[in-house]
Computed example of a mutant assay.
Amino acid sequence: MKQLALLSFLFFSLSFFPQETEDYMDLLSDTIWLNASRKKIQNKDSAVYFAILSKENPESQKVISKTYFVSGQIQKVVNYSSLKPKTIDGKYQLYAENGQLLYDADYKNGKRHGQLLTFWKNGTPKRIDNYQDGEFINGTCFDIDGKEIEYFPYLIEPKYKYGEEALMRYLRKNTFYPPELSHIVGGKVVVSFFVDIDGNIVDVKQLKTSLIDAFDEEALRVVRNIPKGSFIPGKRDGEHVRFRMRMPINFKPSFLKQNNK
């Protein structure tokens, strides 16, 4: 089987927080019951959360999304200037089940604009970051007792342990162009996955098809076979979290090596 040499390799993360990923965001209705993954369900007895979406007024495009724990305690409040396209505008807030505010950020036209505040569970400020039109300006971090500490970024993306060049080499070596498709000009597949808190790739899915099954299957195969623990886990506000990533893989016959595997 001929080996694929990638013309280019693009690798970048899509943090799932604070972006909305729920499948109910096009709905304006009464109570929406949600499971732990915030997917809409019909059986309220299995719900972990419920949400209510409402317009600021009938003529306005502005929408307020409020998510609650099943206990009735508010869990999240997000303001949108519109849902199509989905644009956060105003406050985005997250709460613990005891009512403690954990995250409070200002947005303008879909970008952070103003302050991003996070809090320890005891209510002590954890960070105060300032943004303008989506650009980080400055920030301060604090320990649980309120003492200022060395600053660390709110989001730290996962990284391949051995560097991006090594990851590119791995893909070049292990991604193959199906020989039965040598007459095809090429294709591009976008694969999504999560890097978990142990640095493993999980939940690999096809985000964008090449419209050719063999390309799609090969892209999924090579990503799934990346060895466990190959990534340094990402962090959000100093804590390891799952990060959603996406990886475009280009199949280009003009860049095939001539040797067979």
Rank of each mutant, 00 (worst) to 15 (best):
K108Q: 15
Y68P: 11
K84D: 14
R38F: 07
R112W: 08
E135N: 15
L155V: 11
F11I: 01
L7H: 11
I184R: 07
I88R: 00
D23L: 01
F9I: 08
D196P: 00
L94V: 08
V241N: 02
L6C: 05
Q73F: 01
M247D: 03
S8I: 11
N174P: 02
F12I: 08
P158D: 08
Q3K: 13
T67Y: 09
R242V: 00
L155F: 10
Y131A: 02
R172F: 08
N57C: 04
L167V: 01
N79Q: 13
I128A: 04
G234Q: 10
L220M: 15
V195H: 07
W120S: 05
G134C: 07
Q19P: 00
S192R: 13
V222A: 03
Q93G: 01
L155E: 12
V77L: 11
L10P: 08
L101S: 08
N109T: 05
I149C: 05
N79P: 00
V190N: 13
S71C: 09
K40S: 01
K161C: 05
S37Y: 05
L256G: 04
K228T: 11
F194M: 15
R38S: 04
S46R: 15
Q42W: 09
L101T: 06
F17W: 13
L181I: 10
K91S: 02
P85G: 02
E150S: 11
D129W: 01
A5H: 08
K84M: 10
T124N: 12
K66E: 15
I226V: 12
I64Y: 03
F231H: 08
R246S: 08
T175F: 04
S65L: 12
L211Q: 14
R236N: 12
I156L: 10
F215V: 10
S54D: 13
K252L: 12
I201S: 03
F255M: 09
Q42N: 15
G139E: 00
S65P: 03
F194W: 14
V195E: 10
K205N: 14
T87K: 03
D196A: 07
N174L: 03
I232N: 13
S60F: 09
L6A: 06
L211R: 14
N174V: 02
K159H: 02
T31L: 06
I226M: 00
E180D: 14
R112E: 13
G123N: 06
T209K: 07
G114E: 07
G72Q: 06
D26V: 04
I197W: 02
V223Q: 09
A96C: 07
R224W: 03
T87N: 03
D196H: 05
L28T: 06
F11Y: 14
F11K: 09
D203H: 12
Y24A: 02
L171G: 00
N79A: 05
Q132P: 01
F194H: 15
L167S: 06
D213P: 05
K62Y: 09
K62G: 03
I197V: 15
R221P: 01
G72A: 05
N98M: 10
I149V: 09
S230D: 04
E239Y: 05
I149N: 01
I156Q: 10
F142Q: 01
T140D: 00
L101G: 10
V202E: 13
L171P: 01
G114L: 05
K126L: 03
A36P: 00
T21M: 14
I41N: 02
N98Y: 11
A105R: 06
F69L: 07
